[in-house]
Design a protein around this nucleic acid. Structure first.
Length: 647
RNA sequence: GCCAGCGUAGCUCAGCAGGUAGAGCAACUGACUUGUAAUCAGUAGGUCGCAGGUUCGAUUCCUGUCGCUGGCUCCA
C-alpha cells in the first residue's frame, strides 16, 4: 500500500496509507478532533470525512468552530428539513436547498405550506436528528442519476442533471430513507446538527426565473450554539425596531395610504423639514462645485422618450401615455432627456465643458406592487440628479470628482457601511441593453481604470447596468439586511447620440460629448429611509426636524420659555415650547420618545438667572448654561454636522 | 406581477366552538401648578379593510377584491 504525506494546519506532516479516511486521520490526531470534526478541507476544498486520502495533501479538519464547518452543518440541516417534509407531506417535490448567511433554505413544490406546518416540520427534524442517521455518499454516472430521479418523478432534479455535461459524475447523499442529489459535503451523521429554527415561508421562482414555476421556500436559521441563534434572533428584533417604516410612522416623517395611492408617500411636516435640510445642503454644495440647478417638467411628450430610447427599453416601468389634444404625454421616469434638451438649448464650446446640469428631479416609475416598501421603494421619487456633459478626455477627472463628492457627502451624514459596485451589462441580454459592443467595452474599461487609479475597492456585477451604459453604484444595507443602491454614477455614450449633442472643439469642428449621469443623495425617499434606520430615528442636530424642545416646569415660566424659543429661532434653529400644564417628567419623557436632540427645562431658577437646563438626547442632563453658551454649542454641532454621541 | 400570511378605535394590540366589540396610549373636558423618561378623574371614538355568499343571525366560516407584510422577480 502506497503511503502519502499529509500536511496539517499546524505545519506538521504525517504519513498515512493511501485510502485512509479523513475521519480516521482525525481519530489518529486526537479523540477530541475525532469527536468534533465535521468535514475535511483538503487542498482548500471542503469534503466529507468519509472521503479517503490518495495523494500528498494539505489537510485542515473542520469543526463547528470554523465558519466552513457550520456551513456543512447548515447544508445537512437543509437535507434533514427536506427529509422531514418528505415524511410529513408525501408527494412534495424538491428543488434546491442551499446554505445562506445564518442558515439555509429549501425550495419545494406540489405542496402548499402554511405557517402552522413549521412547528410540525421542526418536530420531525428533531426526530431525524435524534435518530442520528449516518449520511452516506454515493457516486453515480449521469445516466444512473437520471434514471433514478426520473423513476422518482423528481422533475427539478432531472432538470438539474440534464443541464450538466454528459460525462459529469454525480453524487447522491442518503440519510435513513431519504436520498438527495447533492454535491456535498455533509456531516457524518444527522445527530451532529446543533441548533436550528425554521423562520419563514416565501415564494421563489424555479431558477430565479419569473416565467417559470413558483416554488415554496422555507427559510431556516442554523448555528453551532444556542447562544448564536439567540443573538441572531435578537439582531432580527433589533432590525425590526429600526425599520424606517416603524420609525417613520412613530416620528411623523411620512405616511402612505391606499386613498392616495400605492407607493405614493406623503411627507409629513417633520419629514418635510428633514428633507428640506438635505435638499438645501446638497443644492448649496453642488452649486459651489460648479453644478447648475434647473427645473424641468414632470410631464413630457412621449416623443422625448422615443428619442432617448427609454420608450423602447424602459416602457414597462413607465406610466402609460395620456392622449390629450394632439399630444401624447407621459409622466417622466427619468430626467435625462430633459437635461439633454437643456444642453441642446445653446451652442457649446469645448471650453464650456464639463457642463453640469442638476435638478431635484421628481419622477414616476411604475414599480411592481410587490416591490414597494415604505420610502425605500416608491412610485414617485425625487432624485438628486445631475447630467455632466464632457469631452472624452475629461471622463476620468470628472468621474473622480463625482466619487470624491460621494465620499464627502457620506462623511457629512456619517455613512460608513457601504461598498462600491461596478454594474456592467449582461452581454447575453440583447433586449434590455442598447446594442453597441464597442461602447460597452470602452465605457466599462474606463470605469474600472478610474476606480483602480483611485485605489477604491469594488465588486463587479454583470447585468446591473442601466440600459444605456455601465455604472458605479454605491450599495448599502437596509435594517432588514437588503442590499440597495443609494448613489449611482453612470457613464453614457448613448444619449448624446440619440439627441445629436455637439460641442465645437478646438479644431472648430463639431464633436459629440459624453454624459455622466449621477445621483449622490440618490432619491430623497430612499435616502431619508436609510438615514432613519442608520440613526434609529435620532437625527443629528443639523438634520433634526425639531432641534430643541423647551419644557416649562410651570405655567408661570411660559413667557421666559417663549423668549428663549424666539432667540433660538432668530439664530436659525428649530425650537418649540411645550407649555402644557403637565409634569416636567412627562414632558421630558415625550421629548425623549420623539428623539429630539435637546430638551431645555425652564423653571424658576432658569427664569431668574437667565439660564437653561440642558438635556441632550442619548446623554442625559448636561446641567445649566447660559443661552449664549447653548447657542454656541448648537451652532458648533450644526456647522460640523456632528453625529450623536451616546454616553 | 407571482407565492404565502395578515387587515378590529388615531397608534399598539385583546376578543369571537358564529349571537352586531374591549384594553393601554393618543385626543377632548375637568382638577392638580408640578424640577429631568408617563398626575388623577371623566368624556368621546369602531357599519371589526371593502363586496358578495352560507346562516334565523357573520367581525368570526366561504369566495372575490383592495391594501399591508415576508420572499421571488425587478430596481434609485
Amino acid at each position: 500500500m502506497a503511503s502519502v504525506q499529509v500536511r496539517l494546519k499546524d505545519g506538521s506532516v504525517r504519513t498515512y496509507e493511501a485510502g485512509t479516511t479523513y475521519a480516521e486521520i482525525a481519530a489518529s490526531i486526537s479523540s477530541g478532533l475525532a469527536r468534533e470534526a465535521v468535514a475535511a478541507k483538503v487542498n482548500g476544498q471542503v469534503v466529507d470525512l468519509s472521503r479517503t486520502v490518495e495523494q500528498d495533501v494539505e489537510l485542515e479538519l473542520l469543526t463547528l468552530k470554523d465558519p466552513e464547518g457550520v456551513d456543512v452543518m447548515r447544508h445537512t440541516c437543509a437535507h434533514v428539513m427536506a427529509q422531514a417534509v418528505a415524511r410529513l407531506f408525501p408527494g412534495t417535490k424538491f428543488a434546491i436547498g442551499p446554505v445562506i448567511e445564518n442558515g439555509f433554505y429549501y425550495d419545494f413544490a406540489d405542496h402548499v405550506f402554511t405557517p402552522e406546518d413549521l412547528p410540525k416540520i421542526e418536530e420531525e427534524m428533531r426526530k431525524i436528528i435524534q435518530a442520528d442517521y449516518p449520511v452516506t455518499r454515493e457516486v453515480l454516472t449521469r445516466d444512473e442519476a437520471l434514471a433514478m430521479f426520473r423513476e422518482r418523478e423528481d422533475r427539478f432534479k432531472v432538470e438539474i442533471i440534464e443541464d450538466l455535461p454528459a460525462d459529469e459524475t454525480l453524487t447522491i447523499y442518503r440519510q435513513g430513507e431519504f436520498v438527495d442529489l447533492c454535491r456535498g459535503p455533509h456531516l457524518p451523521s444527522t445527530g451532529r446538527i446543533k441548533v436550528f429554527q425554521l423562520m419563514s415561508i416565501a415564494g421563489a421562482y424555479w431558477r430565479g426565473d419569473a416565467s417559470r414555476e413558483q416554488l415554496t421556500r422555507i427559510y431556516a436559521a442554523a448555528f453551532a450554539k444556542k447562544s448564536e441563534l439567540d443573538a441572531h434572533l435578537a439582531r432580527l428584533e433589533e432590525a425590526r425596531q429600526r425599520d424606517h417604516r416603524k420609525l417613520g410612522k412613530e416620528l411623523g416623517i411620512f405616511m402612505l395610504s391606499k386613498e392616495v395611492g400605492q407607493g405614493l408617500p406623503l411627507w409629513l411636516p417633520r419629514g418635510a423639514k428633514v428633507r428640506r435640510v438635505i435638499e438645501r445642503y446638497i443644492v448649496d454644495l453642488e452649486e459651489r462645485l460648479g453644478y447648475h440647478h434647473v427645473y424641468t417638467p414632470h410631464l413630457a411628450s412621449l416623443e422625448l422618450y422615443k428619442i432617448s430610447g427609454h420608450w423602447e427599453h424602459y416602457h414597462e416601468d413607465m406610466y402609460p401615455p395620456m392622449q390629450l389634444d394632439n399630444e401624447e404625454l407621459v409622466l417622466r421616469p427619468m430626467n435625462c432627456p430633459h437635461h439633454m434638451m437643456v444642453f441642446r438649448s445653446e451652442m457649446h464650446s469645448y471650453r464650456d465643458l464639463p457642463l453640469r446640469i442638476a435638478e431635484l428631479g421628481t419622477m414616476h416609475r411604475y414599480e411592481m406592487s410587490g416591490a414597494l416598501a415604505g420610502l425605500q421603494r416608491v412610485r414617485l421619487m425625487t432624485l438628486n440628479d445631475a447630467h455632466i456633459f464632457l469631452r472624452p478626455d475629461q471622463i476620468q477627472d470628472e468621474f473622480t470628482r463625482v466619487v470624491k463628492l460621494i465620499e464627502r457627502v457620506y462623511k457629512d451624514f456619517g455613512i460608513k457601511d457601504y461598498y462600491y459596485r461596478l454594474s456592467f451589462r449582461d452581454p447575453e441580454d440583447k433586449v434590455k441593453y442598447v446594442q453597441n459592443d464597442e461602447m460597452w467595452e470602452k465605457a466599462q474599461a474606463m470605469l474600472k481604470q478610474a476606480m483602480d487609479e483611485m485605489g477604491l475597492p469594488y465588486v463587479e456585477a454583470p447585468g446591473e447596468a442601466a440600459f444605456y451604459g455601465p455604472k458605479l453604484d454605491v450599495q448599502v444595507k437596509t435594517a432588514l439586511g437588503k442590499d440597495e443602491t443609494l448613489s449611482t454614477v453612470q457613464l453614457d455614450f448613448h444619449l448624446p447620440n440619440r439627441f445629436g449633442l455637439e460641442y465645437i472643439g478646438e479644431d472648430g469642428k463639431p464633436h459629440r460629448p459624453v454624459v455622466i449621469h449621477r445621483g449622490i443623495v440618490g432619491t430623497m425617499e430612499r435616502f431619508v429611509a436609510f438615514l432613519l434606520e442608520q440613526y434609529k430615528g435620532a437625527f443629528p442636530t443639523w438634520l433634526a426636524p425639531e432641534q430643541v424642545r423647551i419644557a416649562t416646569v410651570a405655567e408661570d415660566f411660559v413667557p421666559y420659555a417663549e423668549q428663549v424659543a424666539e432667540t433660538l429661532k432668530s439664530a436659525g434653529f428649530r425650537a418649540e415650547v411645550d407649555q402644557r400644564p403637565e409634569k416636567i417628567g412627562y414632558k421630558i419623557r415625550q421629548s425623549q420618545v420623539e428623539k429630539i436632540p435637546y430638551t431645555l427645562v425652564v423653571g424658576a431658577k432658569e427664569a431668574e438667572h437667565g439660564t437653561l437646563s440642558v438635556r441632550r438626547y442619548g446623554q442625559g442632563d448636561l446641567g445649566a448654561m447660559s443661552t449664549e453658551e447653548f447657542i454656541a454649542r448648537l451652532r458648533e454641532e450644526v456647522d460640523t454636522k456632528a453625529l450623536l454621541v451616546e454616553s
